[in-house]
Simulated scan of single mutants.
Amino acid sequence: MSLLKAEGLGIQFGGLKAVDEFNFEMDKDQLYGLIGPNGAGKTTVFNLLTGVYKPTSGQILFDGKSLLKMTPTQITQLGIARTFQNIRLFKKMSVIDNVKVGLHHSQNYSLLSSILHLPSYFKGEEAMQEMAMSLLRVFDLEKYADVKAGNLPYGKQRKLEIARALATAPKLLLLDEPAAGMNPIETEELMETIKIVREKFSIAILLIEHDMKLVMGICEKIAVLNFGTVLAFGTPDEIKNNPDVVAAYLGNEE
Rank of each mutant, 00 (worst) to 15 (best):
I35D: 03
K100C: 02
T50Q: 09
G234S: 12
Y109E: 07
L31I: 09
T56Y: 08
A232W: 11
L16Q: 14
N23D: 15
L16D: 13
K143Y: 08
T187I: 13
A149L: 02
F84V: 07
N86P: 13
D211N: 15
V138Q: 03
T50A: 09
I60E: 07
L89V: 05
S114Q: 12
K100S: 05
L207H: 07
K200G: 00
I115P: 00
V52Y: 14
L214P: 00
T193C: 09
A40Y: 12
V245D: 01
E25V: 10
M212D: 09
E186C: 13
G64R: 02
Y249D: 07
I194N: 05
K54F: 11
L166F: 02
L214N: 01
G41K: 06
K200Q: 13
F13V: 10
K17T: 06
S2E: 11
L160R: 04
Y121H: 13
A81G: 06
T229V: 15
E21F: 13
T56S: 15
N242T: 04
K148H: 11
S66T: 13
A204T: 02
A169V: 08
E253M: 13
L173R: 01
D97T: 12
S110F: 10
M216T: 09
L48P: 00
D237Y: 01
Y144N: 06
L190I: 05
M182S: 06
F201L: 08
Q30K: 14
V95K: 10
Y53F: 15
K200R: 15
F84Y: 14
G217F: 03
L34N: 08
F24T: 05
T44P: 04
P72N: 04
V230H: 13
R198E: 00
L172F: 02
Y121R: 10
F84L: 07
A169I: 09
V95P: 02
V138D: 06
I239L: 05
T235S: 15
T50V: 07
C219R: 03
L175S: 01
V230Q: 14
V215H: 06
M133R: 12
E142K: 04
V99W: 05
D176T: 04
A179N: 07
G41T: 08
K91D: 11
I87A: 09
K171P: 00
